Amino acid sequence: MSDTLLEAGPVLVDLDGGVAHVRLNRPEALNGLDVPLLRALYDALLLVHGDPRTRAVLLTGEGPSFCAGGDVKTFAAKGEALPDYLREATTWLQNCTTALLALRAPVVAAVHGFAAGGGGFGLVCACDLVLAAQSSKFLLGATRVGMAPDAGGSVTLTRLVGLRKALEIALTNPTLSAQEALELGIVTRVVADDALLDEGRALAAALAAGPTLALAATKRLLWDGVGATVADRLPEESRVVSELSGTADAREGLAAVIERRAPTFRGA
């Protein structure tokens, strides 16, 4: 049974079977990010984080594109007040990025149309798994308009694709096809355009049916471990594995293997 958590405004949220579906909802602006949308997105992420029923998150955009980046029309209208406006906007964007990374539930982004700028490209880089429609395009584009990457993209992009390729993307602003984004490691999988939402829901549902404590701990280990040496992470891995082994989900997982059946995980 689907439960609507946010039914109006620039971000919509519903919860179904443990999957919180967060939808950017400014289709007329290609989900371009302004302060109201960013504040709403942050509030939505806190909402699903605080709901104990949330076991996975699906992030999508309404209308023709996932997110075209910052709302350039709003930016241009600010004139000399733009720096102050962008300080506020980027603060909310940073909050959203941090929330995505910190969510215990794994986050799946399903991208169609354009994922551009800090809003589209940067937020995609902060998600855990990314499905891209075959016709989707990816563009960082910040330096093209005299700005710099945000949404953590100056860090996450480098760690996803390597320093040289990140510099090329950030400095020359190529428009990447879904297949190119896949080959670079920016997205997880490319799917047919008409199958994107179904595939995104299926992937999120599979994660929601999994051992949520283990998934949350693994997500944290991998994100925290980016940039660290293997030796740095071994003690923490050992601690987490030992801790998880005492959970009901771990016992259920072992029993299911022994009994040759599908496990039923409860998140405990």
Rank of each mutant, 00 (worst) to 15 (best):
A132W: 07
L47Q: 03
L47P: 08
D34H: 09
F66Y: 15
G146Q: 12
R201I: 11
Q134V: 06
L12Y: 01
A56M: 05
L254G: 00
V107W: 04
A209S: 15
L58F: 08
A262I: 10
A142H: 14
L234F: 03
P52I: 02
L37V: 01
C67L: 04
N95D: 10
L82H: 07
S242W: 09
N173A: 15
P263F: 05
A148Y: 14
G69L: 05
V13P: 09
T212R: 15
A99R: 14
D16F: 01
S242M: 05
A77F: 02
G122L: 07
D43M: 04
G70F: 08
V226E: 14
R23N: 00
A116V: 11
A228P: 00
T60W: 01
E62Y: 01
S245L: 11
L176N: 00
F114L: 14
G9V: 10
P263W: 00
L207T: 04
N31R: 10
G246D: 06
L167P: 03
A148H: 13
T175D: 00
K165D: 13
A192P: 06
V48E: 00
L184H: 04
T264M: 08
A231K: 12
Q134F: 12
L244H: 07
L160G: 02
A102K: 15
G141T: 07
A217C: 09
V108I: 13
T229Q: 10
A256T: 05
A248L: 13
V155W: 13
G70R: 04
G253Q: 08
P10R: 09
L47D: 00
A262R: 13
L82W: 07
V161R: 01
S177H: 03
L157T: 07
G227H: 09
I186S: 03
V190Y: 06
G69K: 09
V72G: 10
L41H: 03
E252Y: 10
R55W: 06
V72H: 09
A205K: 13
R164T: 08
T172D: 11
P174G: 07
A209N: 12
D232P: 08
A170D: 12
R266W: 02
S242Q: 13
L244T: 08
A262T: 12
P83C: 06
Y42H: 15
A204I: 03
T172K: 12
L82T: 11
